[in-house]
Nucleic acid binder design. Structure first.
Lengths: 219, 219
DNA sequence: GAGAGATTTAATCGACTGATTAAACCGTAT
DNA sequence: ATACGGTTTAATCAGTCGATTAAATCTCTC
């Protein structure tokens, strides 16, 4: 049972939950100590008592969401042995991230951090584990292969996170999700063929007329 | 000379300029009629007199920036005849977009539009020309080629815009731009090889050792 | 049952917000 | 000179913001 003594834990819980919900549905500009507290059914002064301010509470909400999503991603991605399977697995969890609004938490805070250096530092801290995670996963799946020389896992990790953030914004402009799905479809069609990128460049067929510059073999 | 009678045009101009600047440096949450007016050196009531509110002014600022950037993109991209050249050209203008903050205007407004349906509708309207532009450019450059069957211009346009938005957020987390540059470098290395994606898939060699599989000829 | 201590509440502060208004301003056409 | 009309100004409105505070509440310990 919850005694009064540790009732603070439950209050913190409700505030974190409400903070995430408010940030997702109202955006950073519509998120205040009062709106969060109201959504949590709690006195607004408790935001400051328990978290010291609005931004720290929002970061706590991001942390909770981030940990949960990271667990989901790790689990889903663990079974992928090829790039193809990896993209397929990632897409599934991606979708859940978007629907659940986790990426919105992140990108709203990134947007808000433009004018708040101390907030930005915290956000950067929280982005790095995701970059590392993607990099390590890629290292496991394509590491050592010729593909990894053309697509260094670290760089692809940057690309994946960039995409991760972009898809979220794009989704806001794509109410029925058809465009987002087209995007996922494209990735699914390309991934199995990625290996082809490492082949030697074939001689270019005549583009219009005259002898085209001979394509040299790689390196 | 500016008569008093048409002095409104100059005021609108200064407000639009100041609105863009404020949104870029302070984010949507830090952008108000007063902060914009102060930056423009103008009375804050004029925001409402000339534009009817803060959001319409911000949209006007987005429109101005968008038109200017669209002109730059059209011009830069016009000379590109291959995917490789296209990516190279796009990257150059991309960089200018990021440095100049144009994408920030866009993504801040997308973020803010979560809780403002009428704002969102306006933003969507303004995203479509960009998608069309990318699609048409791709159609021109790779249309008809085998690559266009694997990478339909419309879908790639979605991907490019997604990337466009994502890079902006990513850049906020990448103060020294090294990661963003790594991203551009990756694109530049992959684009010239994209054609390889249309080759027939070679037989997979046994997963551990062996000589490289014989590459099949195109088509 | 008294006291300790964590938690919660309502009230309050100054600063800011979007928006409106009446009055003042000023070039221009009559 | 006068009056018109687009423009600008300062004042003002009610509402919200982050943050603080003293007092009240409640559980647990002694």
């Amino acid at each position: 049972m919850t005694t009064r003594r540790d009732s603070g834990a439950e209050t913190r819980d409700r505030l974190i939950e409400a903070a995430a919900e408010t940030l997702k549905t109202q955006g950073y500009a519509g998120t205040s100590a009062r709106t969060i507290a109201k959504a949590a059914g709690v006195n607004s002064a408790l935001v400051f008592y328990h978290f010291g301010g609005v931004d720290p509470l929002l970061l706590a909400a991001l942390d909770r969401s981030s940990e949960e999503r990271m667990r989901a991603h790790r689990k889903t991605v663990a079974g992928a042995a090829t790039l193809e399977e990896l993209v397929e697995a990632a897409t599934r969890v991606y979708r859940a991230d978007i629907e659940g609004g986790h990426i919105t938490l992140f990108s709203e805070l990134v947007g808000a951090s433009i004018a708040r250096p101390e907030l930005r530092a915290e956000i950067v801290k929280r982005a790095d584990p995701w970059i590392d995670f993607v990099e390590q996963t890629l290292e496991r799946v394509i590491g050592g292969s010729p593909l990894a020389r053309l697509l260094p896992p670290r760089d692809v990790a940057y690309a994946a996170i960039t995409f991760y953030l972009g898809v979220n914004l794009f989704t806001h402009l794509d109410a029925d999700r058809t465009r987002t799905e087209a995007l996922f479809g494209l990735a699914a069609r390309v991934a199995p063929r990625a290996r082809l990128l490492t082949l030697r460049m074939p001689r270019r067929r005549r583009p219009a007329a005259g002898a085209p510059a001979a394509d040299e073999p790689p390196e």
